[in-house]
Design a protein around this nucleic acid. Sequence first.
DNA 1: TCTGGGGTCCTCACCCTC
DNA 2: TCTGGAGGGTGAGGACCC
Length: 514
Amino acid sequence: MRSAPTILHLDMDAFYAAVEQASKPSLRGKPVIVGGLGPRGVVATASYEARRFGVHSAMPTAQARRLCPNGAYLIPRFTLYRAVSDTVMALLRELSPLVEPLSLDEAFVDLEAGGVAFDARTARATGERLRADIMAATGLSGSVGLAGSKMLAKIASEEAKPAGLLLIEPGTERELLAPMSVRTLPGVGPATGEHLRRAGITTVGDLAEAGEDELVRMVGRAHGAGLYRMALGLDDRPVVAERDAKSVSVEDTFDVDLHDRVRIRYEVQRLADRCVRRLRGSGHSGRTIVLKVRRYDFSTLTRSETLRGPTDDPAVVREAAARLLEAVDTTGGVRLLGVGVTGLADYTQEDLFAQADALADAAVAGDDPPARADGTAPGQAVREGAVRDGAVGDGVATGSGGAPGPDETAAAGAVAGTGALASVVGGARQPEPAAERHWPAGSDVRHAVYGPGWVQGSGVGRVTVRFEGPGSPPGRVRTFRLDDPELEPSEPLPLVGEVAREEEPPEEGPRGGG
DNA sequence: TCTGGGGTCCTCACCCTC
DNA sequence: TCTGGAGGGTGAGGACCC
């Protein structure tokens, strides 16, 4: 615990939704919900306007739609969020070399290590300047908490929301914390909160009064001791700039439960490949392979297998995942499958995917994907978008605000999400000749005549586009055929500063175009 | 129409070795 | 040779976070 408030916690306000409002002028001041749009999607972020209707993070999107039927429901655009986040993190690194990002929209900064704050006054001035700099650079607001420890700085930024700054003077912690709910403390979620409530402990003050022994008895050694220290306002965790990843995993929730064992095996193989791609992308190999299965009743089980040594060989991970699957009863249906690797080590081998592809090309008939549950030809809808970009929600953002198109309906029983499609016929990928293009709500597009815009909704063979950008006034809406050749997916426009370069040919969009 | 995705950390059970 | 405890590795699951 430091004697000066030199730990800063920044939390961007309703980040994803705020970025969407900044880039889509017609949504400013309106309820915006970003998340999975499929039947099993959940809300990632809701704008403050949407929160007034009771919509919040982690709520099923279907429930959000009932509470706020007139909100704008958009898929997440992680490429843009990452770019904005990079800008914000760069501003934080100007304050100190010790910056610990927690996510795209949150970070701790050790101001003392940057030599910019030694007392409350300079810390506060630094925080205010940071908020102004972020607003100037991105057009977005963030909340700042300042305190002598990470826990208190985080609590302070939460209390300061939205668009505020709160400094907790060292020495006032216990008094400040005492009346707060136990749920304020990091690590106290619904289960622990309920556990404590049943014992009559509802505030941080109650926690401190209960004593360490009692808390350890109730919630376990590590958690109990940690809770007691936090209740006293004690937290000496340092700000850590770099953290090593401990595991890599991918998972998909399916719009409709899978029952066909052959299909389930096939999905596990695909997930294993995606997982290894990500593993290799991060420069790691790993020793323990984990299979995750969530069944029709939402019960979740994991099975794992530890190898003799670390691997990043897709064939090895595929085989291990397949072995693990054999030990799992999937009767009744499966709503989610996941494959992960833990026990990471720092190395990768040669491009084993290229080798595997070469082998597959040489023996085309050897590894046919299974027939789809709806009876269509094997492998007609293999999602490529997910492989290219492991974005959250890729597997769940099926709906697009309107009625599902024919392809969506056809795929519903087989493939969650209908991103860019490619054919795999007899093992060789071919272009999808007749695939209907998919326009997820919120995605960026460019029209040859009307310029840049975003998809407001699609369905019944039509896509509705609003033509506007971050710097423009609210734009007009136009409707096109789904296969309009003048409409293309495009990259997001920057929020502030750099003027969009007109008429530069758009690169292949993150969701492809078929 | 309930409940995503990618993580971390902790606890407990079980097995094996010393 | 048998037994019991300590401790590490492994596997499974729960809770939590953003």
